[in-house]
Each structure stands twice: as C-alpha cells, then as structure tokens.
C-alpha cells in the first residue's frame, strides 16, 4: 500500500471539510472495497476521510411503510434488523448474502452503492425499491443515480448520507453467485407496489445495474414466474468473461427473475 494520511470525521460537515482540504482524498467507510484495493495498489488516495464514526449516518428507521437507512449502516445491521424484516425482508436477505460474516460486519450500504461495482448486490435493491439517495448536497432519485460501471451521479466530494423508500407489497432478490468470489454473476431484484413493478438486474449487464422494461411490463400484466417465459433478455447487453458468456448470462437473468418472483410470492 502506498502512503496515505488518515483523518477521522465526527460529522458529515466535518468530513466534507476534510475532503475539501485533501489533495487526492477518498472517503473510507467499511474499507472492504477501498482498503482491499489500496493493498493491491489499484488506488492510492493521499488522504482517507473515515466516515465510520459519524453517528448520524448509521441506523435504520421504519415509520409505517417508510424506511430510512443510514449510509454507514453495516450489511450485518441491515440483515439483522427486525424492524426492516417486518416491512421488507427481501433487503435483509440480500444483505445477509453479501460476502462473509466478517465483511458484513464492516461493509456498509453507502460504500457499496457509492462504489457501484457491476456485480454488487445493493445497487439492484436501490433501483428496484426506487430509493431516494440523500447526500450532503441533494436528493437523487434511484433512476438518476447509476451512470455506468463504477460510475454514479455523485459529484467530487459528495457524501451519501442515507437511503429512503416506501416498502413494497412484495419483493425478493435472487442471485447466482460466482462459485469462487460469491459476487453476483446475475442478481435480480423484483418489487411490486400496487400496480407498479420494478425489476433491476445486477452482475450481468455490460454497463452495470439496469432495469428491465420487458420483464416489468410482463409482470405488471401478470405477477407470476411464468409471465416471464416469453420475455427476451438481450444477450448484446450482457457481460462476457471466463465465468460465463453473454448468452449464458442472459439466460441466468431470466432464471433469477423467475426465482425472485416465485420467492416474493
């Protein structure tokens, strides 16, 4: 790892200020992506601004059907929140399958979403649950947030503070994990609220997480796994690598979507 300077922020404002004074600074949350990347010398921030001790960025509030999750909330705390489980168990289940127990104790929803790894799990939930991403500067709608692989609408120095959404009537996430890394080779989050249906796909798209309009239309017409039988998933939009070619991934997306609808009930 290259040299770096560590700063611990105790408030969001202080973090933004520290970042303003830094050369090539980066925010540090759980570090489960950033520290790992720095160890490989794939990132070399001059300064690290640690967000982990900012109390206001942590925790889950459930008010009726309205959910707010602090960006600094760990995967473990999302997975084990009884209040969240009562209104949106699909999100708890997603969090409980990220990485391993130790990664879940450190890694945060904000870090995962800000990083926007094309194979990460959370981005699909943000999109399918139509979350509002609240930053220290503004509110960003899920549909405007994800720009491409590892690319989001966040500006230089902008901090995600929390995520909020209204719990869906039904939802589920199914992923086909890469057998070695356990990241999604295809992960599909389906959510139904009233007559609205959103289907978000991660792990498979060559441009990162995306919504699949064809599947959404089919599920709006009939909420059942078989409703997806006639929908085509364009292999031209899919990633291809040694783990699976694009036809294989296109098929996986459909299989995961069907399983997700079945699981959502």
């Amino acid at each position: 790892m290259y040299e770096t300077n560590y700063h611990r922020a105790s408030s969001v404002d202080e973090a933004a200020q520290l970042m303003g004074n830094a050369g090539e600074g980066k925010y540090l949350a759980g570090g489960m992506t950033l520290i790992a990347t720095m160890k490989q010398r794939l990132a070399a921030p001059s300064d690290l601004i640690d967000l982990r001790h900012i109390g206001s960025m942590k925790g889950i509030t459930v008010n009726g059907r309205n959910v707010t999750i602090g960006a600094g909330t760990s995967h473990y705390d999302v997975a084990s929140s009884d209040a969240l489980k009562a209104v949106c168990p699909a999100l708890c289940s997603l969090a409980s399958h990220i990485g391993d127990p130790h990664v879940r104790h450190m890694g945060t929803i904000g870090g995962s979403v800000a990083n926007d790894d094309p194979a990460a799990d959370y981005p699909s939930a943000v999109l399918a649950l139509n979350m509002t991403v609240k930053t220290n500067k503004r509110e960003i709608a899920a549909d405007d947030f994800f720009v491409g692989m590892f690319e989001t609408a966040l500006e230089e120095g902008e901090i995600i503070v929390s995520f909020s959404f209204e719990a869906p009537d039904k939802a589920a996430y199914q992923k086909f994990p890469n057998p070695a890394s356990r990241y999604a080779m295809a992960g599909v989050f389906v959510a139904k609220k009233g007559s609205d249906v959103r289907v978000a796909v991660t792990g498979a798209g060559s441009n990162g997480v995306f919504r699949h309009q064809g599947m959404e239309a089919a599920l709006k017409a009939a909420w059942a796994p078989d409703a997806l039988a006639a929908v085509s998933v364009d292999a031209g939009m899919m990633m291809a690598d040694i783990h699976g070619n694009s036809d294989y991934r296109a098929n996986l997306v459909k299989v995961m979507a069907k399983r997700a609808v079945a699981a959502a009930g």
Partner: peptide, 25 residues
C-alpha cells in the same frame, strides 16, 4: 486479499478481517 480469514479477530465485539482494516481506523 480479504478472502481467507486467518486474520479474524473481534473488534468491539464483532468478527472482522484485521488484514483489511488500518490500525488507525
């Protein structure tokens, strides 16, 4: 590379991989 878990310790009561946390953190 944060995979193997030989470095697992408990920090504030929770298991963590100490190879992917800075001492200053």
């Amino acid at each position: 590379t944060t995979q193997c878990g030989a470095c697992v310790i408990h920090m504030d009561g929770r298991s963590v991989k100490s190879c992917t946390i800075l001492a200053v953190q």
